[in-house]
Design a protein around this nucleic acid. Structure first.
Length: 637
RNA sequence: GCCACUGUAGCUCAAUUGGCAGAGCAGCGGUUUUGUAAACCGCAGGUCGUGGGUUCGAAUCCCACCGGUGGCUCCA
């Protein structure tokens, strides 16, 4: 029997026959300063105490690794459940509690008790006591039936249900003191390792993620290896809250929502509307550059057409309907229909393809009330939507073109993003050949760009596979923005054709795609990304003219109108206030440039620009300043 | 939609266990003419989200509805 050990630093070592696994692990862990808390045994994560019975390849896991931290948090989840059971006993049933990014959660079920944040401190206190008690955490394997009996006797019905659904004959449970939990593991050897955790929120969650099943109470918590890291994380959260787009949207007077207008409907104020317009102008330019044609369709289309497209059957509960002259109309939740009508408006030849129809299309979707979230989830929004129609041969190049477009645009804004390919779901239409061809086209194009991507098996639309692009917001939440979707149904349902070289009719391939996604959502992510300090080319107000006293007002007016004429987005503040007061306000509005005009500037025919970082430039003429601004804007576009 | 929490002046927040609704900022009127993040004085501003109910009396307790927050399910 031979054991090959791999240390966290990559160093490897062989151990001789006959060595007991536990001893090896412990002795190694001692050599590492007791840092090893788990091990990857022949590729599988296991407890550090796992006995080794055969030849084995062991990779030691320390807390400083991602796996280690994950195990740490998972054990912390058990600790929380343990504390909750200690405090609330049989009033509360345990269910599951995994580790997540930055922490963990545990779902509890109770008819008698509702958790509130006021109780967090008491739970944390109990957790700290249990951790300090240095309780050994022991794994135990038992037969399914035995485990079912065990948890049934404990009154843990949810655990019983879990075990009943497990395929294995043997299940493992973890014990610490009198607390036992069904768990695959692995876990830390003892509770004493847990040093820094904090309960953060309580929320509802469906049992097994099914909205028809019981509603559980989920307690979210964060956990780090030490108090310092925990504090740093909490500080980061605090900072993130400061850049919340809902807060900044109000402070910067960009947009609002109105209870009177209705939920999920954005009201764009002058500065927000200008920001949005600048984005839209940018989009039109970028699309025209890439061979897209701008089109515009109606906001409502007859319900019959939504029946043809399949939306009436598959998407009706998300749609709004209205009646005109006794005819039923559907308010569009998507822009594809009119684009297809344009395609169908005349006979198409293979020579016409690819066709790329672009529309800044406003859509309405009846989103469930509970999901609305600032600009990130609304009921009326505008997509930078395009539909590409091409021959099967062109598909690959078209997808590559869109991916390149996405890369360019994300680069301009400096966004981090993740890519996912979603493959065929169970409920879907189209032939296997269609799906394979399209999925391969998506993946091949992605491989050629060299960007890393994940595969989301079975998560495609029912009509075709897709690539999703997810941006990260200030709280590290992912928001889907860009998406590229292949569609086999709509060309079929609408009988779209083109005449091929052979003179025969063929079916074009259709791609739905958006780059920013929804302008509303994108603006929301953008606000958080830049913390409201938009780059000059996107700033609704690029500069504000400030006079020091009334004495320079006439000259300042002249400068102001000159800059307006030169195309700058400029405001003036000639109020009878101290300069420092006006600068403070301009700073709070995050205006990029403040143009100070005092007697000196008036005498020289100049302005002194102050950037929002606090940096002053040398005095310059208004024309030179306008030149500087336009140069700076060009760099970003 | 579901679970929990929540709604007071334009904004940010107060209001002892039910007993006359308050502050700062913003606004308005004065004074002040000011050089890089807050000059000073005064005035005005609210049917306490809406509608019911309990009570001698409700911002406060109960119910319904409309919003919002944190999640879940769903999604751009």
């Amino acid at each position: 029997m031979a054991i090959e050990l791999e240390f966290p630093d990559g160093q490897k070592k062989e151990y001789p026959v006959g060595t007991c696994g536990r001893e090896v692990a412990i002795s190694i862990s001692e050599r590492l300063g007791k840092q090893a808390i788990a091990a990857r045994l022949n590729g599988v994560l296991r407890d550090i105490s796992t006995p080794i019975e055969n030849d084995a390849k062991i990779e030691l896991i320390t807390l400083s690794s991602d796996d280690g931290l994950d195990i740490y948090r998972h054990t912390a989840a058990h600790l929380m459940a343990h504390a909750v059971k200690d405090l609330y006993g049989d009033d509360v049933q345990v269910t599951i509690g995994p580790s997540i990014e930055n922490g963990f959660y545990y779902d509890f079920y109770s008819e008698k008790h509702t958790f509130t944040p006021e109780e967090f401190e008491a739970i944390e206190k109990r957790m700290t006591e249990l951790a300090a008690a240095d309780l050994p955490i022991q794994r135990e394997e038992m037969d399914r039936d035995q485990a079912i009996r065990l948890f049934r006797d404990m009154g843990e019905a949810f655990k019983v249900e879990l075990i009943e659904d497990l395929p294995d004959e043997k299940v493992s449970i973890y014990r610490q003191d009198d607390f036992a939990d069904l768990c695959r593991g692995p876990h830390l050897p003892s509770t004493k390792y847990l040093k820094a955790f904090k309960l953060t929120s309580v929320a509802g969650a469906y049992w097994r993620g099914d909205e028809h099943k019981a509603m559980l109470q989920r307690i979210y918590a964060t956990a780090f290896l030490d108090k310092k890291a925990l504090k740093a994380y909490l500080h980061k959260l605090e900072e993130a809250r400061k850049r919340d787009h809902r807060k900044l949207g109000k402070e910067l007077d960009l947009f609002s929502f109105s209870e009177e207008a209705g939920a999920g409907l954005v009201i764009w104020h002058p500065k927000g509307a200008l920001l949005r317009t600048l984005l839209e102008d940018f989009e039109r330019r970028e699309h025209l550059k890439r061979g897209y044609e701008i089109v515009i369709g109606p906001q409502i289309l007859r319900t019959e057409l939504w029946k043809t497209s399949g939306h009436y059957n598959n998407y009706r509960e998300n749609m709004y309907f209205t009646e005109v002259d006794g005819q039923s109309y559907g308010i569009k939740p998507m822009n594809c229909l009119s684009h297809m009508l344009i395609y169908k408006s005349k006979l198409r030849s293979y020579r016409d393809l690819p066709l790329r129809f672009f529309e800044l299309g406003t859509v309405h979707r009846h989103e469930k009330s509970g999901v609305l979230h600032g600009l990130l989830r609304v009921r009326e929004f505008t997509q930078d939507d395009a539909h590409l129609f091409c021959t099967p041969d062109q598909l690959h190049e078209e997808i590559k073109g869109v991916l390149g477009f996405v890369q360019d645009v994300m680069g301009i804004f400096g966004f981090e993003y993740e890519l996912e390919v979603s493959t065929r779901p169970e409920k879907s239409i189209g032939t296997k050949e269609d799906w394979d061809r399209a999925t391969n086209a998506l993946m091949e194009a992605l491989r050629e760009t060299g960007l890393p991507f994940d595969i989301n098996e079975g998560d495609g639309a029912f009509y075709g596979p897709k690539i999703d692009v997810k941006l990260k917001d200030a709280l590290d939440r992912r928001w889907q923005c860009a998406t590229i979707q292949c569609d086999f149904t709509l060309p079929e349902r609408f009988d779209l054709t083109y005449v091929g070289k052979d003179g025969e009719k063929h079916r074009p391939v259709m791609l739905h795609r958006v780059i920013l996604g929804a302008i509303e959502r994108f603006v929301g992510v953008l606000i958080e990304h830049f913390e409201g300090k938009f780059p000059l080319w996107l700033s609704p107000v690029q500069a504000v003219v400030l006079n020091v006293t009334d004495n320079q007002q006439k000259y300042a007016e002249k400068v102001f109108s000159q800059l307006l004429d030169l195309g700058l987005r400029v405001k003036k503040d000639f109020r009878n206030e101290k300069l420092s007061f006006k600068i403070r306000e301009a700073q709070q509005e995050k205006t990029p440039y403040m143009l100070v005009i005092g007697d000196q500037e008036m005498a020289d025919g100049t302005v002194t620009p102050r950037f929002r970082t606090g940096k002053n430039l040398n005095a310059m003429t208004p024309a030179d300043f306008a030149e500087l601004v336009s140069r700076e804007c060009e760099r970003h576009q």
